Computed example of a mutant assay.
Amino acid sequence: MSALLDVQGLSVSIGNTALLDEVSFSVERGQILGLVGESGSGKSLTALTITGLLPLIGGRITGGRVMFDGTDMARLGETGLRKLRGRRIGFVMQNPMTALDPVQRIGEQVDIVSRLHLGLSRKEARSRTLDLLAQLRIPEASAVAEAYPHQLSGGMKQRIVIAMALAGDPDLIVADEPTTALDVTVQAQIIQILTGLVRERGLALLLITHDMGVVAQACDRVAVLYAGRLAEEQPVGSLFERPAHPYTKALIGCIPRDGMEAGGLRGIPGTVPGAAHFPSGCRFHPRCDRVLETCRTRQPLLRPLSPSGAAACFLVEGKPA
């Protein structure tokens, strides 16, 4: 099966600063890919590039390509991108508190998506909106549609943002940290609803998160970003059972577990370097507890993993992919 979204060798810069360096991954219909990494790894920048919003922050693609259903996104003008955004590519913004217009009723904000992209009448659009709100398990959908954003909880606002992403009947949803600032119970509900709708509709979902627990719960495959480079990509089961890159192992080690003793939760020493201060060689080597001398001077290339996947680490045996 050919991938709906195919990102190959993607490099992105803002001004003279290179931020993404030859990032590659793909997402098929009916598949959920988790794009994970700490803040500053390049996850949201990747989302903006995929949705054609990179120029809004002064960015540009300097290498590679983003293919959506066989179309090179970089070759589309703004008119072509607008036909895709909202209609075939839905975008769940990172912060639902600021993603909604505070002076417009909820129903109107969801209605406009299906009116613009599906050509529905006002009555048809409102019927679709109420149906979406019901699918997202929003009680009293008619009353919520007449409410303003400030009258809703954070979890309810996140459901509304998801409804807006679904209203155009897209093939791909890009969800950028859809559970940020929500409590654990609401997070679980949002992820369950979102993944359930993806499975039912046969959509593709790129789920961007820093939460490895969410990844384990929701994803089919996982791509791990660190400082603008792909560290590892594997099926979710293989990644948690046999993580190949030290950074992936460190992220998994940060997951809280039942029965964990006080003080048992581990962190990763140091921080993700800023783009102006990326180290030479492997960008993770200053924080790595298994660093080799060659890691300090040479950039590791992606090496294949069994049964499928790849990792950019000198500790992985095999020839570079």
Rank of each mutant, 00 (worst) to 15 (best):
S2G: 01
G253P: 12
F314T: 07
R287M: 05
S127I: 01
G309V: 09
R137F: 00
D258L: 15
L292Y: 03
L194T: 10
M93E: 07
H117R: 10
P243V: 00
G196S: 04
E177K: 13
G274I: 04
V224M: 14
G86N: 10
P235H: 13
P178V: 09
A47D: 02
L265A: 06
L53Y: 10
R87F: 00
Q299K: 11
G196T: 01
C254K: 06
H150F: 14
A250C: 09
I112Q: 15
S26N: 14
R199V: 04
G40Q: 09
G37Y: 05
A276T: 14
E28Y: 02
T179L: 11
A147M: 07
A231W: 01
L206I: 14
G270I: 05
A163P: 12
R221A: 08
I193N: 02
I191T: 07
L120Y: 09
G155P: 11
I255L: 08
R159T: 00
G42Q: 09
T195H: 10
A204Y: 11
I173H: 04
A250V: 10
A74L: 01
G253F: 07
A244W: 02
P243C: 09
F240L: 04
S2F: 00
I61M: 03
S238K: 08
G42D: 12
L132C: 07
R257Q: 14
R137V: 02
R298D: 13
R201N: 11
P286F: 10
L194A: 06
